[in-house]
């Protein structure tokens, strides 16, 4: 029984279909990870050192964007509250470090459990709706988490919480050094990428993707679409929680601003910027976004005045994101093996 997408909205599906022509796309992903792995070397050869911090931060957001791509790109569920999971991860880290429990092997299970719980509850409610209502409800739940963080007066409330030490990992201190922090983040990103790619390629992932195209058909085929979506939502939330852990350690600070709805909007933009549903597109999108932010905010404190219209123009005039553009360029150069 094939679970091929219905031909309904072919243009959209083409732009968004993950890993469709099997050869070229992993090549981009491999190149991407090789480049990232070579980054510290490039820094020792003279690339500005703050790039290492910037790329670490970009990779942290890439983990969150990647997890969002699982539900938004593959599952077709536009969640506008994804920053809540980053916030849960960051706050769990901040609170436990403040309470003297800075071992990552203690913190991470707490984060995963808390994110899974929050995702299961909010997902069970919001997945009862479709389309625009889902967008609005996830936005509202994200905002709920934001106000909850503001009300945590014991842990900084509105002002946020400064962390005076970083986590340890099995007794070692990989987060104390910039280069080792970089590699831990890269390894986490690669692990999450491998995990989500495996999920997408599995029977579960194909059912999730097929449900985006035609939920009724998938239901008739014998899958419980609601449960598949909920499981994907929970997995996605747990992975985003990991990025919150890394973010809190990198910035030595946690604040409600981590959960603001603008942050959720930025995550969506990273996914769309890279190319919806392609997974490595989310990573490219996060890198591009943080570099653009870095450059523009270096020019003017009012960088959003430039960035906002850029988003509008991007939406109006491009399809398929950066990955689509790269693909088009690649096929122009290598037309011999093209479809």
């Amino acid at each position: 029984m094939s679970l091929a997408p219905a031909p309904a909205d072919v243009a959209l599906a083409e732009a968004a279909r993950p890993a469709a022509p099997p050869r070229r796309r992993p090549l981009i992903a491999i190149l991407l990870f090789l480049t990232l792995a070579a980054m510290p070397l490039a820094v020792s050869l003279g690339v500005p050192a703050h790039w290492l911090t910037l790329v670490t931060r970009a990779m942290i957001f890439a983990i969150a964007a990647l997890s969002l791509d699982l539900i938004l790109g593959v599952g077709g569920l536009v969640s506008f509250g994804h920053a809540a999971f980053i916030g849960i991860g960051a706050y769990a880290t901040g609170i436990m470090i403040t309470e003297g429990r800075s071992e990552a092997l203690l913190i991470l299970p707490v984060i995963l459990a808390a994110c899974a719980l929050f995702a299961a509850i909010t997902g069970a409610v919001s997945l009862r709706t479709r389309g625009v209502a889902f967008i609005m409800i996830t936005l509202a739940f994200g905002q709920m988490a934001y106000f909850l963080a503001q009300a945590l007066s014991a842990y900084g409330g509105d002002d946020g919480l400064t962390l005076y030490e970083r986590s340890t990992l099995a007794g070692f201190k990989p987060f104390a050094n910039r280069t080792s922090f970089y590699y831990v983040t890269l390894a986490t990103l690669a692990g999450c990428y491998a995990l989500i790619s495996t999920i997408v390629a599995s029977r579960f992932g194909r059912a999730l993707r097929a449900a985006r195209e035609n939920a009724t058909r998938v239901t008739v085929t014998g899958y419980d679409v609601g449960r598949i979506r909920l499981v994907a939502y929970v997995i996605s939330g747990m992975i985003a929680g990991l990025s919150g852990f890394l973010l809190a350690n990198q910035t030595d600070f946690v604040s409600p601003a981590f959960i603001s709805w603008q942050r959720s909007g930025e995550l969506i933009f990273m996914v769309v910027l890279g190319g919806v549903g392609s997974l490595h597109g989310a990573i490219i999108g996060a890198l591009a976004y943080l570099f653009a932010e870095d450059v523009l905010s270096g020019w003017t404190e009012h960088w959003r005045v430039i960035f906002g219209p850029l988003i509008v123009l991007f939406v109006l005039f491009t399809r398929g994101g950066l990955v689509g553009i790269i693909g088009k360029l690649a096929s122009r150069f290598g037309s011999r093996r093209d479809d």
Binding site: G265, F269, G308, L310, I311, V312, F314, V315
Partner: peptide
């Protein structure tokens, strides 16, 4: 959502 989000930033 994205385009109007861009307008909000602006």
């Amino acid at each position: 959502v994205l385009a109007t989000f861009g307008l909000i930033l602006l």
